[in-house]
Design a protein around this nucleic acid. Structure first.
Lengths: 120, 120, 120, 120
DNA sequence: GTGGTCTAGACCACT
DNA sequence: GTGGTCTAGACCACC
């Protein structure tokens, strides 16, 4: 998963989503330390402050916590992580259903299309 | 459906998608005339040349045809329109499934989430 | 109420508290517009970004909301404001009781001292 | 009680307060000898001169006295110590009442909050 | 070297 | 003129 930032939404939001994804998918495991701000910033090609802003928000959502002078860690509350995953999935589903609604496609047709798809 | 153009993908592509959507959803009915380029351009707040480019592409895909001195019309080939709709839907579905795959969510779970959703 | 910033706690926290105080005391009335970021920043003698950070947090606590291009407003949820006031008071009380506990002073003595005080 | 010095008030004032607290709480008992300046300075991580200044002031307030070649002792005038404790408590109370006044909270409400508090 | 904070200055979208 | 975002660069406390 590269960063692939788009210019039409706030970068820090996209960073936030990317970090979240890494957490809910277990790439950053519960309780484990994540890379330092500056490293993440370099990796994403953004200013450290911007990455910091994303991490701050992530902290506000309780998915990570920081220990001064030591580093940042993923919460070990796996239930919370699982919950965040559910939220992200639900948001995805809703966006998808809305876009399908614009095409006036019924749920049944959607189901069929998904069944047919080769992905996954 | 307003235009809501984003700055990070070619504008004419976004216009193209919007026009397509109006056709497949029947907002522009099969066989009927669509508004003149200049009018569409004003509505979308873009340069007429950009809108023209989108319409040309739409013509290339056989969804509209132009009659000299008289204007542009939606194709009356409803099967073709229906097909375009299928294509758009499939593209949507694939993008959606990919994003869910990133979250490591199985098809079964996806199905359940869609069933549960209040949308549609 | 001037700003009177101390250098040993994060400035944006102190700004946050000051703004909160203005809201819970009704200096910034529920539903009313508050001064623009830049003006507040000048008034407090800090960088606009720092004031922005405080306001962002204040927004996170639901005490204000911002309307793009138009300004920031105090929430009209007076119950929420009242609640914030309670929280601040409780924090004050706890800090006070802790400092008194360091002096090994009992609650009864505290009560007497408060009764005797000429303040209020 | 660690030292926990803040950078925005004169350090010697903070040392003075800390020493006072140790005396009025009986950590340094009436009539007993207190540690030598140099030791106290090391403990607090400050320059001996700064600690000396605090002790001189403490001496000025009659809470300690020094005996040449022998060391410094807490006064054995327990009434005086008790009085100092009262002063500190009163200062605390006033600061507290002022901060509550800023929140426009009445004495009655304050009393109730203190009663409710679990501290002490 | 870690996270945290702050400033200065710029640009954007919207109205 | 409003809020919002971003960068660059600096300094701090802590270990």
């Amino acid at each position: 998963m590269a960063w692939n930032l788009s210019s039409d939404r706030p970068i820090y939001i996209q960073l936030l989503e990317g970090l979240k994804r890494r957490i809910v998918t277990g790439e950053y495991k519960a309780g484990s330390q994540i890379p330092p701000v500056r490293e993440l910033a370099v990796e994403a090609g953004v200013n450290p402050n911007t990455m910091q802003k994303a991490l701050l928000q992530l902290e506000g959502e309780g998915l990570v916590y920081s220990v001064r002078t030591s580093g940042r860690f993923v919460t070990d509350n796996t239930a919370h992580i699982e919950n965040a995953k559910k939220e992200m999935a639900k948001a995805n589903v809703n966006a998808f259903l809305n876009s399908m609604a614009e095409l006036a496609i019924t749920k049944d047709e959607i189901m069929k299309l998904i069944e047919e798809s080769e992905i996954k």
